[in-house]
């Protein structure tokens, strides 16, 4: 089975690091971008199964990335989990309106359970993407 490919977009190295560790342990191939411009560049060059996307970033922010993704036929259907410290109702509403599939607010605790829930929501509980995940590892 080919591993699913995830793009992790966050300007904080340490946040990319622990997300990368979980995702690799679950069998995903992980690529990273440190800002919105880098994310869109990688999305143009490669195919991804889903994105973890920070919002407040230099160059282009996550909202801009999401908007551009949803208006581009190549990327409009790629599921996106938004990761952000913006935790007010109107921020979440904006995220879902722009096309986010799941919304995780920083600082998140029990990261693995939250990520799994987001992935289950995107692909379904019994999908190939979810079956390899053991959060009790």
């Amino acid at each position: 089975m080919m591993s699913k490919k995830v793009l992790v977009v966050d300007d904080e190295e340490v946040i990319r690091k622990f997300l990368r560790i979980h995702l690799i342990n679950w069998g995903y191939e992980v690529k990273e971008a440190v800002d919105g411009v880098g994310a869109l560049e990688q999305l143009g060059n490669e195919d991804f199964d889903f994105l973890l996307l920070d919002i407040l970033m230099p160059q282009k922010n996550g909202w801009q990335v999401l908007e551009e993704m949803r208006s581009n036929p190549k990327t409009k259907n790629i599921p996106v989990i938004v990761l952000t410290a913006k935790d007010e109702d109107n921020d979440m509403f904006k995220g879902y309106t722009l096309g986010a599939n799941y919304y995780m607010t920083k600082p998140f605790t029990n990261t693995k359970a939250q990520l799994l829930y987001g992935i289950q929501l995107m692909f379904g509980k019994n999908s190939e993407s979810v079956n390899n995940i053991n959060i009790f590892r």
Partner: peptide, 8 residues
Amino acid sequence: TPLTGIIG
């Protein structure tokens, strides 16, 4: 942001 890093 750094708090997320610490917890994660």
